[in-house]
Design a protein around this nucleic acid. Structure first.
Lengths: 192, 192
DNA sequence: GGTTACCTACCAACTAGTAGGAAGGGTGTC
DNA sequence: GACACCCTTCCTACTAGTTGGTAGGTAACC
């Protein structure tokens, strides 16, 4: 706890990167111990089971996402610019290949084989993101800044799905620019 | 080969269902042998390695997808109705939970940890699907039946991404209706 | 007699997870 | 200040089960 970057946190960070590569079943404790300077068994001291590790990893990810959104709300007032900043954040992540996929989007695709505790966290992320997007769209529509075709909720779900699908296509094509090519028209379309 | 449903085909079908559940690393040869009445080692007779198995599985999936599209082209003339039929096909698959996810969409999310041969097949599926969607959109626009905001290609990529994202959201929420809730506005939007 | 399809028996490597101990720091008590 | 005690962190050593894959044999069919 006293370290600026505790071992437990290093493990979480490492596991996150590994999950982003290929999901829950694509990494092992051995993979983590190879990167973080720690023995396989020592990981169990911090996280008794793999399910624990990933649940806490997603919980931490959700906290960071919430913090990022809060900062966006503080620094950017215009709803359209908020959406553009959100999309731009991911465009950057994909372009520099640091975290080229949303942890929860990746885990969501594997839900049938995931521990229940992890599923609940992933689902909560989807709801949280959708809620925020809906609130932004609603505000934008009220200000006459955005044009919605359906309800804010429906538009938010579609927006989120398209962003996730764009991540997938970028990965499938092996071309980071795909993400922007899909999301730019998405933004243009809702701009008033 | 002589059997109406050969053992090799049974293995491919079974592996496909297992992949749809949670991807490449979520199933083993043991899982297959438990379902298909065959010994673990015998699977290697038909498919020397797991990479071979999954590559052929995706190739078969692509053939079936191409056949489905060809049938659609034969039976449905109106571009908008073609798109609606395509989306409706997936809505049915998700509702009855038989194949509630596109094999290639799932594998695409795991690309960094997939054998190269599988990646090429997955990428080819994305290109093929995008090509078809673009051709339908182009035709629809030329007939004045559909309204495109960007190029047919860009619109096709966005359409595909949204459909994939809708599968993901349906899985994340654990609610099949989510898919329709996202794709219906998607179709409405491009209808002239 | 060769090919195909399947079998038993095996393997080394890896999986998540456990048992038990050593080193270190913090704290309460005398 | 010294000592005992405990808690945290990490270690070595181990385990049972699973992983994809191999070797070699058998039986049926063309």
């Amino acid at each position: 706890m006293e370290h600026p970057q505790s071992k437990a946190d290093e493990i979480l960070r490492c596991a996150r990167s590994l999950i982003i590569k290929g999901g829950y079943n694509s990494f092992s404790y051995a993979d983590i111990s190879n990167v973080v300077g720690i023995r396989n068994a020592s990981i169990h001291h911090h996280f008794p089971s793999k399910s624990d590790l990933v649940r806490k990893l997603v919980a931490q990810y959700r906290e960071e996402a919430a913090a990022g959104i809060a900062e966006l709300e503080r620094n950017v007032s215009d709803p359209f610019e908020q959406l553009r900043a959100y999309v731009g954040y991911w465009e950057g992540c994909i372009a520099d290949a640091t975290h080229p996929f949303c942890v929860c989007a990746l885990l969501a695709s594997e839900i049938p084989v995931l521990p229940e505790a992890v599923v609940l966290e992933v689902r909560a992320h989807f709801r949280g993101l959708s809620d925020w997007l809906a609130s932004v769209l609603e505000r934008g529509a009220a200000q006459g800044r955005l044009t919605l075709t359906g309800t804010a909720r429906a538009e938010a779900e579609m927006f989120m799905a398209t962003v996730h699908g764009a991540m997938l296509s970028a990965r499938a094509y092996g071309d980071a620019r795909t993400f922007g090519a899909i999301t730019r028209p998405l933004l243009d379309r809702i701009a008033a």
